[in-house]
Design a protein around this nucleic acid. Sequence first.
DNA 1: GGTCTTTCATACCCCCAGGGTATCGATGGC
DNA 2: GCCATCGATACCCTGGGGGTATGAAAGACC
Lengths: 306, 306
Amino acid sequence: MKDLEVRQLRYFVAVAEELHFGRAAARLGMAQPPLSRAIRDLERELGVTLFERTTRQVRLTGAGEVLLRDARTALEAVTAAAHRTRQAGSTSPRLRIALKADIDGGLLPQILDAYHADPAALPPELVLGGFGEQAQALRDGLADVALVLCPWDGRGLDSEPLLTEPVLVAMAATDPLAARTHLSLADLAARSLPDGAPAAHGQSTPPRPRATRSASNLSEIFSLVETGSVVFFAPASVARRNPRPDVAYRPVSDLPHARLLVAWPQDARSPAVAAFVRAACAIAAARRAQEEAEAEAEADMPSSTT
Amino acid sequence: MKDLEVRQLRYFVAVAEELHFGRAAARLGMAQPPLSRAIRDLERELGVTLFERTTRQVRLTGAGEVLLRDARTALEAVTAAAHRTRQAGSTSPRLRIALKADIDGGLLPQILDAYHADPAALPPELVLGGFGEQAQALRDGLADVALVLCPWDGRGLDSEPLLTEPVLVAMAATDPLAARTHLSLADLAARSLPDGAPAAHGQSTPPRPRATRSASNLSEIFSLVETGSVVFFAPASVARRNPRPDVAYRPVSDLPHARLLVAWPQDARSPAVAAFVRAACAIAAARRAQEEAEAEAEADMPSSTT
DNA sequence: GGTCTTTCATACCCCCAGGGTATCGATGGC
DNA sequence: GCCATCGATACCCTGGGGGTATGAAAGACC
């Protein structure tokens, strides 16, 4: 009944992920025999067999799968405790905001302005990361609050919706498909996506079409798009802010809308986080109202075009 | 940057709770000097001072408070991993249902019937506990699913509402207040509550009036109520199922309704949990529909009384 | 103000748990 | 049937976590 140690959990997760004691030991920077022994001791302690092992194969048991899931979240919680404590004890505490560049729908500057006006505000610090890394940053205590796109893994996090906007496909203006005004995902199945982009909002990763080219920022992505080597899914706000002569944006009928959320750890108590969330919700509400008004004006004067 | 160990977190929590190295060491079953050293090492590792200490007083710093909160949740996650893994590896896996006796609104038998009909059902096992212990049991991996009353601490848990019902006060029929038909919390301020009951649904614990008598089950509580020594807040379903000649139930104007929820760990993937939640929601919906129908019938024939 | 008590920190020692090396043994491939 | 691969076992050794003895500072009490 002695409780588990972080070291044991780390070892277990390594073996469970590698399904190979030798490789797991290498990853952990240790020799294989002590790792085998550590796992055996762990199994004895829990009174449970975690792996079915032969000399040729290592397989997780059902109990092993349960432990893998729970061990990961426990390890997250431990590293988060360390990171958050260091941050809280730092001489210049900051509000660390995790987001992916260019996905803030153009809201971030206004949100930061509104946030600064709050007396509880700490100096903000942007933590940029790839798609889907924001939630992990929150869980690991590397960020205090995040802007994330749906779909996301919200375990342990709270969130408020900010914006919902349609997603367009960006393709070379010379692409034959650009001649059509409406497309479906099926039409695009043969096109490559830039690496690091969400495969397709919502559904389980469809087989990444072809070898995907890697690109980490919008300008790189757009140069790939312009050459016709890839297509790219861009929320309407991104499309609006990046008009390019050689890039055509087209609606895709069956692509779910992009939903931008503000998220934070469920047990966050920091007033700075609360201030940021309030600011983000207020600015997003204002933006929605403004867009609604514009849509109405558009309806009144259907001749006007942008 | 070496990561924290469970032992360090346990030590820290003990000191943070006792605010006294000697007592904390005693609680941990160890001597005081190694504990002091462990805390000092922890502070060095994090680069943060966690306690302001003089020889006469130990006080948590801000960073210490952050770590206290996060360390508790991390420790919960670790013990939950152990408990859930043991349970998953057991030869006779069960669905452990946490609840407080008598707060199921009379739904439990039907829920269990419906649950049994599900092919994913595991044999159920009831885990009884006091008020507010259900959420903790879920977080510690001692239960898989729970029936809880609002208000509750839902950090890390998901839930679905089942029932909302008014709360009545149960008092001795001879109590002078029993002569009135409507009461407010202020009227009851001078009455004692049985120990272990929720102080007052919703608000922060009001000063427990008088020395509260301890009682762990409904019959004990009712005998105390009948003698006039205490009053007791009972959801309507409990009152309906426990008519007693010497106990009067009266509505209280400013007492929030009791809300019964079914809750489970956010990352639960067990089909048995899903089956139980489905069963609970279905039965609760049926109950709500039935009560609505009864209310309508009542409205049609206002002369009928129960 | 001196002394005593309380309580956290320091100094020093010791033991074993966790890690390394060498080797065995089983299993599947050729 | 031999070999290569990979997990398990046996044994040793070192570092860190824990114990005891003691110091030092800060209230309490006369």
